[in-house]
Design a protein around this nucleic acid. Structure first.
Lengths: 228, 228, 228, 228
DNA sequence: CATGAATGAGACTTCATTCAT
DNA sequence: CATGAATGAAGTCTCATTCAT
């Protein structure tokens, strides 16, 4: 058997990239179920070698997801509208996010799968491995716009930018869970498109500053639903 | 060896329930990874018998999730406040939902896992098997309250009750994805409790009828984000 | 569930026959591998009931073989030629035997399977169960002819009729092992037909009385092959 | 866990042999019923590994039988008597065959089991897998002696050596079927030993050239036994 | 370092046989 | 007595991971 050896660090890096690339292709198409064997084959090396570069399948899986976030980041960058209004900008960012996920349904599922399973228990605790880092890097895109809105007095003063961002983001993912599972759904039109539009509008409206509005505390009349 | 037998249909149902109960206990505690063998053992029957009642592990897994929805339904029923205001009622229902999921984190993860993986491809297409049915049964609890709000002119007329419900529900699940993954999070207080409170308030505010508000269409200034 | 009960002995016998008949049909077609379930189904009763009539699969299998010997016996009876010469008669009987087996290849295989496996260990030791009895019943057909030959001085005097019969019979089965395995072999002509003809001739010749012939003892020059 | 590895083809062959050896030991002792698991254990490897080397149990079983033929071949080789008479040689070979089978009864049963069941349907059609090849390799031992007899004018000229060999061989196996099933039978003496001796004598006599002998055609008086 | 081989765990089946009703 | 249900044993396969070379 003849094979290449990865003597230099550079060569080593190239290999890792190749594995990741193969993994991405296959995971994004068929999900976690793809056998490691197959990924190795596509990267033109043996299973055992793959394990030299990745501690286990889960770490490779998570790395593949991380990669996906880079592409998502590009998309968000392109969606930035330096001179648009705050609302337009926010709208554009959220739509870019949703668009991207609908264009890459399996990838979205993988991100949700990551949350649903205990991947953190199964991969090295190296923070560079964790997805959180990657996700955190995307936050500013949204947070900055929101903060601009705060400065302009558009949004409620008692709403922290980070919280608003989280709420908007997770509402989007929540809806994506359904939209993405709906195989028949056309991406950019129909029921789901409208639903996303409505959801974003509601969020924006709900966060808008208003003279007459009070705090977040549970209404008085809800004693039996223990408060959080 | 001596064993029990399920002769009547009723008996058979009981047996199925028993298996399900064992499966629930184990799945809810350790997730999908539990060996079928172990589930059978806990149900005090042989693996072969278990396979008489469930076509495969996935079908059992999904059935276990379905079971969980029954418990959730009870919780929602208890949260109904016949004479509370619309907002109080909605608030109570959403909190009940979130509370339940935080009390049963693994169960929540399983529901999200179900959405993230292609379980529907792996189980019989019998609609009774599908989770969708079970979820649909919960919808009216929320929808009815929202419709009451519509009748009272509290919510925007152009917002369909079903859409509003979906948006609120999925926002909650989106946030739960994070909250549940945060092992350290205390359930009923702290950051997450506050975040849920804020999110619900925003949704309610955003859906509120207002004289000055228009449609859902994307603002004019968003041509580059292909429209939905 | 409604079913028939076998109250009378007669009814009981009918059932046993029905099972046997189903077993024969299926065993003769597909061999030992047929599931008991299927036999029961064809006999229109449940597996468990079948076990009331037969101790286990092997006993049923052996019973099915026994049945086959009855048919074989008919064939032998038809082959008897009261006024034929001894050689013609013997020839006719052996050919009838071989013909029958080639017409019922699976049945022949079953008889050989019975010998090759330790069926006697697995069935009740009731002699009525054993195949030997059944086979013994067929012996006289051949033995009588041979004895007639003895009386006529055709065959060597030092050859016991029973031994000759066994030798002739087992030579036939030995060849049948091969002929029957040769799926492509046409039954009544070609290589195998000729081979059987030759074999029978050789046997008859070899057993023929001759003035110059001595005993059965191993020749002197075979000391190293320990004698039997 | 630590284990051995078969890297080279030679090593691999050794491994396969080791499995085969374990299989032989167990099959020859307890027949087809031995669990694959147990064979693997005796070969000191895992079931999964065993399945790397053999497609399924049947292929292993057949391979074990093939192995047995090698030992038989040695025995036949040892039985060759270069300067013995034709009759002595044939006698010696046949006795060696029978002796070997009586010494290895289970092995003989396995060969007959192979013929009686449709093993060829269940194993790969690779001719190297088939037993036929192995058996064919043994033929020359007998055929050569017979041909020597032909050359010396000892045997009928119209008897092909191959046919004579088949007839003698199958007569022996036919008798072995019975002898081997007779657990109580002592190997080298008694009824069976005598029977084999007689059978061989008859065959040799029957094949002997004689001035007055005609063809193999069925006698005239056998019209009703359809001719083959 | 690269890899083929080995492995343990577990899913899923089939099936003869037995048990409880 | 008849039977549906249960079961244990075993075959087969897949796959993530590890070991020895």
């Amino acid at each position: 058997m003849t094979y290449l050896q990865a003597r230099s660090d550079e060569e080593k890096n190239r290999r890792k990239k190749a594995i990741l690339s193969a993994a991405k292709d296959l995971f994004y198409e068929r999900g976690y179920g793809v056998p490691v064997e197959e990924i190795a084959a596509r990267a033109k090396l043996s299973k055992a070698t793959l394990y030299l570069y990745f501690k286990n399948k889960d770490e490779l899986y998570v790395a593949a997801i991380r990669e996906g976030f880079l592409t998502l980041e590009e998309r968000l960058q392109n969606a930035i509208q330096p001179d648009g209004s705050v609302e337009e900008s926010l709208n554009a960012l959220l739509h870019a996010f949703v668009d991207h996920m609908l264009d890459n349904r399996k990838f979205f599922r993988m991100t949700q799968h990551y949350l649903a399973e205990d991947f953190r228990e199964r991969i090295s605790s190296d923070p560079d491995q964790l997805l959180e880092q990657e996700i955190n890097r995307l936050f500013p895109y949204v947070t900055q716009v929101i903060e601009r809105g705060m400065d302009q007095g558009i949004f409620r003063k008692d709403l922290k930018a980070g919280d608003f961002r989280t709420i908007a983001w997770r509402m989007a993912t929540g809806l994506l869970d359904l939209a993405v599972a709906d195989e028949s759904a056309s991406i950019r039109e129909g029921r789901w498109a409208e639903l996303f539009r409505k959801a974003i509008t509601i969020i924006l409206e709900g966060a808008r500053a208003r003279r007459d509005k009070g705090g977040w505390s549970p209404e008085k009349g809800r004693p039996e639903v223990a408060g959080f």
